[in-house]
Amino acid sequence: MTDASSNPSPLYAKLLGETAQIGWPELERFFAQGKLIWVKSDLDLVSVAEAVANDDTTQVAQWLSSGLIERMQAETAADLSARDPELWAVVTSPWVCVQERN
């Protein structure tokens, strides 16, 4: 896994450059399609996107089983819609990894 203290991979650097702030209204259609991956604030959003893009099933499975990432649930979507917090997203087609910044 790449983190900020190590030398980032070319893919990490590319994904970092494609990461942007986004509002919930722009993400709703991806939620409706079941394509949003909710990333808990404990994780580096770009590292998650990198693992998904690299099809690192072992790492992704560990995060899923520990609850650090999940397919966005309806309750989370409703909360985001109501609050419209600061969100960041990066696309790793067909997925969109999303995280709330605190």
Rank of each mutant, 00 (worst) to 15 (best):
E70M: 09
A51R: 01
W24P: 12
P25G: 10
S81E: 14
N54V: 08
Q21R: 15
W24A: 06
S6T: 12
V60M: 09
L80Y: 15
N7C: 07
L64R: 14
Q21E: 13
A82N: 04
L16E: 07
S65A: 14
Q33H: 14
A32M: 11
S6G: 14
A53K: 06
N54H: 11
G17S: 04
S6N: 13
D42L: 08
A77D: 04
A20N: 10
V46L: 09
K14E: 15
W63M: 01
R83N: 03
D56A: 12
T2Y: 07
T19E: 01
A82M: 04
Q62F: 06
V39G: 03
F31Q: 07
N54Y: 11
F31R: 02
W24D: 09
A53F: 01
L68F: 06
L68R: 13
G67T: 13
E70G: 10
Q73D: 11
S65V: 06
L15K: 00
Q59W: 03
A78Q: 15
E50R: 08
G34R: 11
Q62E: 12
E28G: 05
S41Q: 13
S41M: 05
E50G: 05
S47R: 03
A4F: 11
R71S: 12
I69V: 15
E75G: 03
W63C: 00
W38K: 02
N54D: 13
